[in-house]
Design a protein around this nucleic acid. Structure first.
Length: 582
DNA sequence: GCCGTTTTCGGCCCGACTGTTTTCAGTCG
């Protein structure tokens, strides 16, 4: 784990313990906020720890947090963290992770029923003791049992590519319900995060009861978690939670904004509203008319804006920004809506496999699929010899393959087929073919496939070496991570970006939803530095071309514009860039 | 704990649903 990740974990746990002991909510929030900042940071925080001013210059990190960060970098420990942990039984944090069990309940169960861990909780659940506690009844205990059973088999967050398919099916299902008007997904899915905690669906309808009932009874629902007039929650058999919000047509824009988030983006928006004498909630942007028991929409107050997102941003003197950048990472400071890359901008696929290695397509099938997608160029980039498991090509087989690609390119009209390779980067940075052979290829994608647990320094050296190789065009899936399965490498991203800039090499966003590598914050850093980005699907089958949209949203989360994306270039520009390395 | 183009002190975002209660605390997003 990197220093940033370790410190993020520490601040997160501190915020959890502070909740348990009933500390000031704003202090709790400040710790959680620092954890978030550290998690999203590209720079190794250890490099800033020589001067507290460098740390406090970061919005959200104050003197207190800076001191703790420096202490950790110097000693490997944070005294206050250890003291906080010692102040409670360690197992309590596990108990608090159970859905439905918050700090107040856990504290109560600890002090009044001696529950200190998941093990003691399980023991006491059937004792009848818990029901006797204040505000605890049979139903609550039953819910805890159910949550506990679910938590035991619950997996991680759902990957974007799986959540998206699921959400689209639900949207389609609900659209068919009588009275349904607009149905769409919001939340982290609309923002295009690489993994999704739960799926948020918004609907406008002339018949709220019908759509809510249909939602709670739809195929695949395992348990109804909440069933209100405007909000329903279900858990699917796959373990994914889905929330439905029934929205009034007049406040659809406010609801979209609110339920799209991010939470931090929303907090900043609401703070801006207050400074303007307004207040923002999921029903609209209202004039602040002082203290009342009821919120403005219930008192018939006319909103300043509510129907569209655009109107609300405008009323706050902000420009509308795409959902993918709503992370409080500078998007509220822009003067005009950024022209981020879109699916239709992509005109070339530069990383794809055929039956020569581990793909399922022939060269012809690959070419026809790429042509059908409207591309001017496709590169055949099968695995190199060291990728035994993927049937990587020996130099002899690669030369034959190059000939086959050249022949297909002559024969098939309407698309340019390039001969390439996805070359393994060895642990020391050497490539899997000699330079003479590499020079015969039109496109070289260099990717790490093995030694994916090497330390950060070695990984950085390895990838910088590959990026600096004069015959390499693109660094493929730079970290080698597999979401929810494998962490991959932790190279110094800034070093990679500098090498990419210096040698005019592109960094890949691998659009396969299991990879999405580079990830969003890496893309943002690369884009800010002016590096070139490739978005490739790494297609092994025709269907895999559909992964492109996941790469696009990841790119958009990193503020990528078409100009900086080599796959969006014209044929002439792309080919001349490729040839410049030959 | 963090922050300040009104502030170095005094603020800090908002609402739905559940379960256990007779009016609301706790949890969640």
């Amino acid at each position: 784990m990197s220093t940033n990740a370790e410190l993020s974990h520490i601040f997160n746990e501190m915020s959890k313990v502070l909740q348990l002991i009933g500390a000031n909510p704003f202090r709790i929030n400040a710790h959680a906020n620092v954890a978030r900042i550290l998690k999203d940071m590209i720079v190794d925080v250890a490099e800033l720890a020589d001067d507290p001013a460098k740390l406090t210059a970061i919005d959200g990190i104050g003197a207190g947090s800076a001191k703790k960060i420096i202490e950790f970098v110097q000693t490997g420990k944070v005294k206050e963290y250890e003291e906080l942990l010692d102040s409670i039984p360690r197992g309590l944090l596990d108990v608090m992770a159970i859905p439905g069990l918050g700090p107040k309940t856990v504290k109560l169960m600890w002090e009044k029923a001696g529950i200190t861990s998941l093990a003691t909780l399980k023991k006491k659940l059937n004792s009848g003791q818990l029901e006797k506690l204040p505000r605890m009844g049979a139903k609550t205990v039953a819910n805890i049992k159910e949550s506990l059973a679910f938590a035991a088999k619950a997996s991680q967050r759902t990957r974007l590519g799986e959540a998206m398919i699921l959400a689209e099916a639900i949207v389609e299902f609900l659209t068919m319900v009588k009275g349904a008007n607009r149905v769409e997904y919001a939340g982290s899915l609309r923002r295009g995060l690489d993994t999704i905690g739960d799926i948020d669906i918004l609907a406008t309808t002339t018949n709220p009861a019908a759509i809510s009932t249909a939602f709670r009874a739809m195929p695949g629902v395992q348990k109804v978690l909440a069933a209100g007039e405007t909000k329903s929650s279900v858990r699917l058999e796959s373990g994914v939670q889905v929330d439905l919000r029934v929205i009034d047509e007049q406040s659809f824009g406010a609801a979209r904004m609110y339920f799209t988030g991010s939470k931090q983006h929303n907090v900043v928006l609401r703070e801006r509203a207050i400074k303007k004498g307004l207040r923002l909630n999921e029903y609209g942007l209202f004039p602040d008319d002082g203290e009342h028991d009821e919120p403005p929409q219930k008192r018939g107050v006319k909103p300043v804006a509510a129907k569209t997102e655009q109107a609300i941003y405008a009323a706050l003197d902000l420009v509308w920004v795409p959902p993918e950048v709503r992370e409080d990472r500078g998007e509220l400071d822009v003067r005009e809506t950024p022209k981020l890359i879109e699916l239709d901008d992509i005109k070339a696929e530069l990383h794809a496999h055929t039956i020569a290695s581990d793909g399922k397509m022939t060269i012809d099938e690959l070419a026809h699929e790429a042509k059908a997608r409207g591309f001017h160029t496709v590169a055949v980039t099968d695995h190199s010899r060291s990728s035994i498991q993927a049937n990587g090509l020996s130099p002899k087989r690669l030369r034959e393959h190059i000939d086959a690609v050249r022949e297909a390119n002559e024969r098939i009209k309407g698309i340019t087929i390039l001969a390439g390779s996805e070359v393994d980067i060895h642990a020391d940075g050497r490539l899997d073919y000699d330079d003479k052979l590499l020079a015969e290829l039109d496109v070289v994608i260099a990717s790490p496939h093995s030694a994916l647990r090497q330390d950060a320094k070695a990984a950085t050296r390895r990838l910088v070496t590959a990026l600096s190789h004069p015959l390499v065009h693109v660094l493929g899936h730079p970290t080698g991570r597999l979401i929810n399965k494998r962490e991959g490498l932790h190279p110094d991203l800034n070093a990679l970006i500098q090498a990419a800039l210096e040698h005019d090499t592109a960094l890949e966003i691998n659009a396969n939803y299991q990879r999405l590598d580079l990830r969003d914050i890496h893309v943002k850093a690369a884009v800010d530095a002016g590096a070139l980005i490739a978005i490739n699907t790494d297609a092994h089958t025709p269907d895999n071309f559909d992964f492109l949209r996941y790469g696009i949203v990841t790119a958009r989360r990193g503020w990528l514009t078409p100009k900086q994306c080599i796959n969006a270039w014209t044929k002439q520009k792309l080919h001349s860039w490729l040839r410049a390395k030959r």
